[in-house]
Design a protein around this nucleic acid. Structure first.
Lengths: 189, 189
DNA sequence: AGTGTAGGCCAACACGTGTTGACATGCCGG
DNA sequence: CCGGCATGTCAACACGTGTTGGCCTACACT
């Protein structure tokens, strides 16, 4: 019934709206992003945005659709997993606004926080559980790793603390990698 | 001219507004907090909020006024500084909404992010610089420590990742303390 | 008692928002 | 040539917001 064929004409417009929306959401957060502004920057009428996506909420949902695309950690040498994870995330953030949009909104909106918990539980925990036997412990370790990784994202991409922003990727990984490594593999203190 | 004496009658009302504002700002962030709602919860007219604080921006400023009140780390045994810092912050957060209000807003509002950078540079860096000789290095180390500490705050108080929320304070300090310790004192990798 | 003043309330304004429905335009199949 | 449909525009609605100014009330002081 609501099955959508790709309309050739609209595909480009839709994509342009989506790209603009992603940009605005990630830059200014959900509340401060207005449909009118997205429409203006996409050079289209606000009502078109509504036509394509129904409402602001669904537009955000479409813009925030993403996968962490985590590597399979259990295939790596065990002493490399920390650095690999950190490296993966830093590259992910540099190349895609989407994560930042969700992070920004998660700070304010309970629904987005919910979604981040889902991503955490559905995508991060399993990968880390593959390294360990006890699932409860895996969740704790994953959460600690997340705290450090999200903390870096916050300081580097959102709050823009100069020392973290200026730090080259390699140095960042050299500092933070061992932390995550310890959270994932060190014995429970 | 605009010099304000404390009016005995109003002091209580003003305090009630401020407390309610702090609560709302920390819970919902700046944008989703409305003056009308603060006024309603403080059982007062919205216009009174304006009378006392001028505008929403200044109300937030008054509500977000705070000091980290960091301990003097250089007075501690050097191998204790990491755990001490983490402990201090966890207790600080449990007892005071203000930090969380600023964190929430910092995720969305550049002005608040600015302010967090000020707090970071003005309050955290100096304390950490007291441990080290090279000031540039002190800033990097402080930023790394901040990334971990703010990451915990984010996961525990804002995003509410269950494993971090449920983790007892002692265990949290046992895990995170050594991380911060390493950032502050370990040789540059 | 009369009066000034601080504390408080009410109603309204101006504005920006998400959202909607009526109307235009150009393309494509018959 | 014409009718339908996708694509897009325009103008408006309903609502919630921060903010303002006028009015009321009660108390302190002379």
């Amino acid at each position: 019934m609501t099955s959508e064929q790709v309309r050739p004409r609209s595909a480009e417009t839709r994509a342009r709206i989506l790209a603009t929306a992603r940009d605005h959401f990630s830059r200014h957060g959900y509340d401060r992003t207005t449909i009118r502004r997205i429409a203006a920057d996409a050079e289209i009428d606000p009502s078109m945005v509504m036509r394509y996506f129904g409402n602001k909420e669904r537009l955000f949902a479409a813009a925030a659709e993403f996968e962490l695309r985590l590597p399979d950690l259990s295939a790596l040498p065990p002493e490399r997993v920390g650095a690999a994870l950190v490296e993966h995330f830093v590259e992910r953030w540099d190349g895609d606004d989407t994560l930042m949009a969700l992070l920004r909104r998660g700070a304010t909106d309970p629904a987005a926080a919910d979604r981040m918990r889902e991503v955490f539980a559905g995508q991060l925990v399993p990968v880390i559980a593959a390294l360990h036997t006890d699932p409860a412990e895996a969740a704790s370790r994953a959460a600690l790793a997340a705290s450090q990784i999200l903390g870096v994202a916050l300081c580097r991409y959102v709050l823009c603390f100069p020392p973290v922003v200026d730090m080259p990727k390699r140095e960042l990984v050299a500092w933070v990698g061992p932390t995550v490594q310890r959270y994932l593999t060190a014995p429970h203190p």
